[in-house]
Amino acid sequence: MRCLRLTFLLWVCLTWAAIAQPQEHNNLWVMWERVVNGQRQSQFRSHLLLDVPPAEAQTFFNNLTPSAQTYGAANVRHETSPLCLSQPPPAELTSIDTTPLTLADKVATLGGLNGVFVDFRAVRGPRTFTGNFGETVHSFVVNQLQQAGIPLLTKEEIEATPGQPTLTLRYSVEVVGCKPWSISLGLTQLVVLTRDTSLMLNTTTWSGSARQSESDIEYGAMEALRDVVASFTEDYAKANSIIGGNAVTQIEPAN
Rank of each mutant, 00 (worst) to 15 (best):
V52N: 06
V52G: 05
V52D: 08
P53N: 05
P54K: 15
A55Q: 11
A55D: 08
Q58T: 12
T59G: 11
F61W: 11
F61V: 06
F61S: 13
N62H: 01
T65C: 10
P66D: 10
T70P: 01
Y71L: 04
G72S: 06
G72D: 13
G72F: 09
A73N: 13
A74K: 00
A74C: 03
V76P: 07
V76F: 03
R77C: 05
H78D: 03
T80R: 06
S81E: 13
S81I: 11
P82K: 11
P82W: 03
C84S: 14
S86C: 07
P88K: 04
P89N: 05
P89T: 12
P89I: 14
E92A: 14
T94W: 02
T94I: 04
S95A: 14
P100Y: 11
P100F: 12
P100K: 14
P100A: 09
T102C: 04
K106T: 09
K106I: 07
V107G: 05
A108D: 08
A108H: 10
T109W: 02
T109S: 06
L110D: 00
G111M: 00
G111D: 01
L113V: 05
L113T: 00
N114M: 15
G115H: 04
V116K: 00
F117R: 00
D119F: 02
D119Q: 03
A122V: 14
A122S: 03
G125E: 04
T128V: 07
F129G: 07
G131I: 03
T136N: 02
H138A: 05
V141Q: 01
V142F: 05
V142R: 08
Q144K: 01
Q146D: 09
G149K: 01
I150C: 05
I150N: 02
L153M: 11
K155G: 05
K155A: 11
E156V: 13
I158N: 02
I158E: 04
P162D: 12
P162K: 08
P162Q: 03
Q164F: 08
P165I: 10
T166S: 06
L167C: 05
L167K: 07
L167N: 13
L167D: 00
Y171K: 04
S172A: 15
E174P: 07
